[in-house]
Amino acid sequence: MSAVVLALHGLLVDGTVATVEPVLAGCLAAHEPRLVLDVSQVTVCDTVGAALLVSVADMARDRGGEVRLAAPSPAIRSWLGVAAGMSGIAVFASVAGAFAADPRDLLDALPAGAANCVDERPAPRLPRLRRRVSPSGRARSRRGPASPRR
């Protein structure tokens, strides 16, 4: 059985999913669709992008087909071990392996905790307070010297 190969590149995030989703849905219109997604050029993937991949795979399964991921970039690899439903998607090292569904080309999922998802941001740094000190040792505000007191 043949498969449709579709290459995704760039950002797979909340702002771009609305553009990609109809294209993917159109590829799943056939009975028993087989879709290979070349995700080697995806530079950023957030929770919405990962959820899109899972929902497309679910739609394909509902129609008797499947979705295979090929050559996942680091942005996609970071979701393989942590996103709910990603474990149900076959991931291959190459497009050719995914197209042929070659079991020798299958990649293992990352162990839990090894991923660094784009939504896991480090704690924000608190701004450092700057204070100017006059030669006399007294602190001044940023607005300049203090006005004389009356």
Rank of each mutant, 00 (worst) to 15 (best):
residue 46 D to C: 00
residue 6 L to Q: 00
residue 18 A to K: 01
residue 74 P to K: 11
residue 9 H to L: 11
residue 136 S to E: 00
residue 110 L to I: 01
residue 116 N to Y: 07
residue 144 G to L: 12
residue 38 D to F: 01
residue 94 S to F: 04
residue 104 R to F: 05
residue 12 L to P: 12
residue 56 V to H: 00
residue 100 A to K: 13
residue 2 S to V: 03
residue 95 V to F: 05
residue 54 V to T: 08
residue 44 V to W: 13
residue 66 E to V: 03
residue 126 L to C: 12
residue 73 S to K: 06
residue 81 G to L: 04
residue 123 A to G: 09
residue 68 R to L: 09
residue 65 G to T: 06
residue 14 D to H: 02
residue 122 P to H: 08
residue 36 V to F: 02
residue 43 T to F: 01
residue 47 T to F: 09
residue 36 V to L: 02
residue 29 A to C: 08
residue 110 L to Y: 03
residue 119 D to H: 02
residue 33 P to Y: 12
residue 7 A to D: 05
residue 127 P to A: 15
residue 62 D to A: 14
residue 66 E to P: 03
residue 133 V to D: 11
residue 46 D to N: 01
residue 134 S to H: 13
residue 63 R to D: 04
residue 62 D to G: 15
residue 35 L to S: 13
residue 149 R to Y: 13
residue 54 V to F: 12
residue 81 G to V: 08
residue 142 R to A: 07
residue 118 V to E: 10
residue 144 G to Y: 12
residue 56 V to S: 04
residue 74 P to F: 09
residue 62 D to Q: 08
residue 22 P to A: 15
residue 24 L to Q: 08
residue 126 L to R: 15
residue 53 L to N: 10
residue 45 C to M: 02
residue 111 P to I: 10
residue 105 D to L: 12
residue 137 G to P: 12
residue 142 R to I: 02
residue 40 S to C: 09
residue 102 D to A: 01
residue 39 V to Y: 03
residue 71 A to Q: 13
residue 130 R to N: 13
residue 104 R to E: 13
residue 33 P to V: 12
residue 41 Q to N: 10
residue 5 V to K: 07
residue 61 R to K: 11
residue 121 R to K: 14
residue 35 L to R: 08
residue 124 P to K: 08
residue 9 H to T: 14
residue 39 V to C: 08
residue 63 R to L: 06
residue 104 R to V: 09
residue 52 L to Y: 00
residue 92 F to T: 10
residue 36 V to C: 00
residue 148 P to A: 15
residue 57 A to I: 06
residue 43 T to K: 02
residue 99 F to E: 01
residue 30 A to K: 06
residue 138 R to D: 13
residue 140 R to C: 15
residue 83 A to K: 12
residue 150 R to A: 15
residue 81 G to Y: 03
residue 148 P to E: 14
residue 100 A to Y: 07
residue 58 D to C: 06
residue 139 A to V: 15
residue 29 A to W: 03
